[in-house]
């Protein structure tokens, strides 16, 4: 498997790329929080947030529409929110007959639904931009410096490192299965669904044992290089005045969006 299938980082030298990862992580979370704080139907504020987003896109040198292309990943989940369309009291906007129910879409319901979808859509784009402009190990370091417990960040580091190795092994197992199972013209593989599930289960078991044995070897490699149970990492770069300034500017922008959301 090509390991790049999992990569989300786009190498570039841009303003956003060069920001301290801690600033970017904090700003992303603040942006998502700001969206959550906006009241339903604050359209102008949503627009302002979108402009903020676009500015970040431009500042990353990845292009105005960069995050847009991948931003629909969360949209299927909007299905979960469909019911608010007709469950909130308000003036009817549209009504239709579904089987024996008469369903009435209200203006308040529509506003709420749109607000949920927009919040989600804006938030996911900023998260996309974060991983596109920051190498994942740097995000993990930033989390460590932002006080996420060391054991979690270490597990995440290992997960990231071995994700590629183990996904490759999983892929080989699936390929081996595919090369041994003929597919009939009906498009269905051989055997019953439970049987196929058992094969998948056996593959998972095999993958587990290989991973378990690998963790032994990795542990030996760590011991050989002086690991005694305590993991040490290099100190982070000093947080400079520029970084603070950047955080302040970003927060002011978000404050502006919040004010707009409440006044207009």
């Amino acid at each position: 498997m090509h390991s790049h299938a999992f990569d989300r980082y786009h190498h570039k030298h841009s303003f956003v790329h060069n920001l301290d990862p801690r600033v970017k992580v904090a700003a992303t979370v603040a942006f998502i929080l700001s969206n959550a704080l906006l009241p339903d139907g604050a359209w102008v504020a949503f627009l302002a947030a979108y402009v903020f987003m676009l500015a970040a896109n431009v500042g990353s040198g990845l292009g105005l529409g960069f995050t847009f292309r991948r931003s629909f990943i969360a949209l299927p989940f909007a299905l979960a929110a469909v019911t608010v369309l007709f469950s909130i009291a308000g003036a009817p906007v549209a009504s239709f007959q579904l089987l024996r129910w008469n369903i009435v879409v209200t203006d308040a319901g529509l506003a709420r639904f749109m607000s949920i979808v927009i919040r989600s859509w804006l938030s996911v784009q900023m998260a996309i931009l974060l991983v596109a402009t920051t190498e994942f190990p740097k995000i993990v370091h930033a989390l460590r410096q932002l006080r996420v417990p060391a054991i979690l960040t270490v597990i995440i580091s290992f997960l990231y490192r071995y994700l590629f190795v183990l996904a490759d092994e999983a892929m080989r197992l699936m390929r081996a299965r595919a090369s041994r199972s003929a597919i009939t013209s009906s498009g269905k593989g051989g055997g019953s669904a439970p049987w196929r599930a058992r094969v998948a289960g056996n593959m998972a078991g095999q993958l587990f044992l290989r991973s378990y044995e690998r963790s032994d070897r990795v542990y030996n490699a760590m011991l050989s290089r002086g690991y005694t149970g305590e993991l040490r990492i290099m100190q982070a770069r000093q947080f400079r005045a520029n970084d603070w300034l950047m955080i302040c500017i970003l927060l002011l922008c978000l404050a502006f969006i919040q004010i707009v959301g409440r006044m207009l």
Binding site: I155, I156, F158, Y162, S211, R214, S215, Y219, M222
Partner: peptide
Amino acid sequence: VPLMGIMAA
């Protein structure tokens, strides 16, 4: 530590 990390993977 390595066990949990690799098991997460």
